[in-house]
Design a protein around this nucleic acid. Structure first.
Lengths: 138, 138
DNA sequence: TCCATAAATAGAAATCATTTCTGTTTATGG
DNA sequence: CCATAAACAGAAATGATTTCTATTTATGGA
């Protein structure tokens, strides 16, 4: 949590109850959440809350790297806590409980080299999303 | 093109001018396209066309594997021609021209094994999206 | 601690992507 | 050709996301 607050401060964002509540939610749930999911969960703990606020906070958090926007099947925006850098992310999403776990190991370099060699392209970033069933859901 | 028409027939879909035009577009452009992009492009060549038709066709084509829904930064639906199977896809997207190229090489097995061993999870599918600048745009 | 100020917010309203619905048209097998 | 189910256009509805405006609040400095 403190790490996240530090990121906020570093980017001159104010520490507000809404922002703290959103961080708290992501830290404790560790799941892929849609904006409305976040809204519902956070609204329970606060007296007033607007959905646009959630959209704005999620967008800000994405920009400064507190959370990450992930691929969703249905095209809706989906976010998850993610400590890794922007240019290089691997995460495992449980198809059952929606929990997201980051994967630190990376052997993408081989693929990047392959692409740079065979397609003649320059690889700037990559995102690997693995899906399956997590240990708890098995 | 014939491959795609065969897929349509195999799935009992009718070969209509709209569907052919959409296939044609994806085959020739090879780019990530949003539904409205497809609509604009296809409308030029046909006398009448409704946007819902495009949405339906894109959805059908996705289901039968002619195209694939890719990750877009802004959460909008984005599609590209993709011959690979559903469970296993790697593509390189040019950040400049938006062209999509499939990458056949795969060394994800190592990561999958890592996940299955360390997270105790079962990996069902994965999607690797690499981004950068393609040879033509360099 | 208090104050000034810019940032953050709620709530209403607008926008825009996507889907649904209905009546008409069309591809296709017989 | 014809019958039929599938495909379609166009209008309308839906629902996610964004914009706008007036109000509230966090924060750095007195």
């Amino acid at each position: 949590m403190d790490d996240c607050l530090k990121i906020l401060k570093d980017h001159k964002f104010k520490i507000t109850p809404k922002r703290k509540a959103v961080i708290e939610l992501f830290l404790t749930s560790r799941k892929c959440l849609k904006p409305y999911d976040v809204y519902k969960a956070v609204r329970k703990r606060l007296d007033s809350l607007g959905l646009p606020t959630i959209y704005r906070i999620l967008d800000e958090f994405c920009r400064i790297g507190i959370i990450k926007r992930l691929q969703s099947d249905d095209g809706q925006l989906v976010y998850a806590f993610c400590s890794s850098q922007k240019k290089h992310s691997h995460y495992f999403v449980c198809l059952n409980c929606n929990k997201v776990q980051e994967v630190s190991v990376c052997n993408i370099n081989g693929i990047s080299r392959y692409i740079e060699k065979n397609l003649g392209a320059k690889v700037e970033s990559h995102q690997l999303q693995l899906e399956g069933i997590c240990s708890e859901c098995k």
